[in-house]
Design a protein around this nucleic acid. Sequence first.
DNA 1: AATGAATGAGTTTTCATTCAT
DNA 2: AATGAATGAAAACTCATTCAT
Lengths: 198, 198, 198, 198
Amino acid sequence: MAGGTKRLPRAVREQQMLDAAVNVFARNGFHETSMDSIAAEAQISKPMLYLYYGSKEELFAACIHREGVRFVEAMAPAGDPNLSPRDQLRTALFSFLNFVDKNRDSWLVLYRQAIGQQAFAGQVRSSRERLIQLVEKLLESSTKNPDPGTDFSIMSVALIGAGEAVADRIAGGDVAVEAAADLLESLAWRGLRGPRPS
Amino acid sequence: MAGGTKRLPRAVREQQMLDAAVNVFARNGFHETSMDSIAAEAQISKPMLYLYYGSKEELFAACIHREGVRFVEAMAPAGDPNLSPRDQLRTALFSFLNFVDKNRDSWLVLYRQAIGQQAFAGQVRSSRERLIQLVEKLLESSTKNPDPGTDFSIMSVALIGAGEAVADRIAGGDVAVEAAADLLESLAWRGLRGPRPS
Amino acid sequence: MAGGTKRLPRAVREQQMLDAAVNVFARNGFHETSMDSIAAEAQISKPMLYLYYGSKEELFAACIHREGVRFVEAMAPAGDPNLSPRDQLRTALFSFLNFVDKNRDSWLVLYRQAIGQQAFAGQVRSSRERLIQLVEKLLESSTKNPDPGTDFSIMSVALIGAGEAVADRIAGGDVAVEAAADLLESLAWRGLRGPRPS
Amino acid sequence: MAGGTKRLPRAVREQQMLDAAVNVFARNGFHETSMDSIAAEAQISKPMLYLYYGSKEELFAACIHREGVRFVEAMAPAGDPNLSPRDQLRTALFSFLNFVDKNRDSWLVLYRQAIGQQAFAGQVRSSRERLIQLVEKLLESSTKNPDPGTDFSIMSVALIGAGEAVADRIAGGDVAVEAAADLLESLAWRGLRGPRPS
DNA sequence: AATGAATGAGTTTTCATTCAT
DNA sequence: AATGAATGAAAACTCATTCAT
């Protein structure tokens, strides 16, 4: 046993365990991940996981929760009420893509693993839903003369979808945050001009 | 034993089994689906599944394959070389969304289940990649004077992402194909005008 | 593997498994018995136990049920309505003690193990209760002039308790059925004469 | 942290722990009781239990021992050599039933839990054996002209069994000590008259 | 062609028990 | 004297997979 057998205060161990869990879950998904492998990654024994988190599902939930909080915190700047809607969206895009860029595992576990998990899909979906509605509001409020029949709702769905796809690329290291943010922003405002360009 | 040991020609049995498998996989995902439940759904015995498909993974692969072929066939009209790029894209969008609308399970199994599956993610990803490149070409070829610096590649990624998000809504029955297609089309052409609207 | 690996029809295997389970449960009690040890005793694999009985608790329940039925069947002769109450009691005693004598494990599992098991104690207790009431009726109906204040109910409780204690001795091989039955019978009728002998 | 690290003299701690243990064991049985739950009930930490008692089994043994001593002490009056055998039995019955009435947990742990426990069944059984022999002596010595063939030994077994059954009722609060004692006493003397009433 | 019977190999989960402070 | 932190060992349960008929 290398330097593993230290007694750590509860709070530290908790983070250590979550770090390991997020990492392994992000790589392999909920089902392909065994508690054994998480314990190994965290360099502790399996019973500790159960002692601290009760069950595999609760451990996964704890991961989702911690990463979710991190995510929301990262997005906070976009909520600044002094910003214009346009700047809010711009800030949000940057915050989002930067977060994904810096926290690959968070992104994967939050959006690509949790959603495949019966018990958590609902949670993910509903937080996505909230995001969609937020974007919808932003679009509405910054569009002076919308074309009649503009469907902001589905527009938001599409934009979030685009954002997630682009985020995947960023997580994959294929794309730069700057370029991606610019694209999404332009997509948002241009798309708004109404469904049928001449 | 009514309906017990029917001898069916191979081809029929194969389809019967795939139908069952696609259905159950779409509902529950790869891991949450047991061979038992597929056998039950198909009203045959488990060894039959193994006789025809060898293993759970191969069975899943067969599902992906059949649904993939169906999908490609559904998209065929968009390849008509007599169409203008614009009309090709338009046709593709309609074909795609109609397919999803009529084949919920196919969509779910192809894009929402397979992608979460280590062994198949690659397959899905690469076919998505092909689609992205296709769209990229379409965009390029129908843009006369692109803004300098227009990144068609990431634009395609975003569009496909938007399309998938919208497809999910259609699969959920929340959105009409018409409206969705219009939106995506407009997003494509408008987005092209370049990243930075004044 | 000696002669173990035969394919047996379901019904046969079921009995074989119950035989093993009753045996091990009787020896070691519910908690001290592992499914592994039952599987070993039955010379089959653990999954078979689960395939046939679902869970350890259900397997135990099946044991209780089978042995309970056997027990009731063994007691049937005592129910003959042509017998006088006295003869009914006498027959019941003989049936009971003979059953215990010939089926040690049944007795142990039914009365000494099941009763310690949260989930089954109720069942055992209530069947014992029925027995007590039955005896109560028998005593009442065959006592012409009971002493005033004779409490047939508690008398029955005592007699059944005595019977169970004696049954344990018989199960242990320490006592002969004949002598035990005689004793219990005399206890029943003599005890009836009222609480306070001069 | 109010009430945190109280230093208590050894003897007090010991009793506090045994109280908790007896209580929980009586309620849930040996196996269904975890050391954690005992520690919680005693409001101390688990290592204390191990420090004082070494192991779960030893703790259980200590419970049995303490309650056994209490029980024996409660029965002491019956040993008064100035009493006639009849009065000894009578006193014993009252002492016994009163003890059970006042010490439900002792009774449960001593006779209903310990007996189901491989490691302690022997202990319980042998102390029961002593009791049986005692009763046997009492019966013998107070029967002037026994019927030939009277089997005092099995008679004692039966009486003790009856006594335990009645004790259970008393522990359950269903029956009054007085009535129960009377019944058992009469059963003892009447039963003696020999096995076959004309 | 088809299936009932059977299992190897793992997974999650739970405790009694022990260190290090 | 007392405890928070940690684990080895085992138990219940599941499932993809294969045999014998």
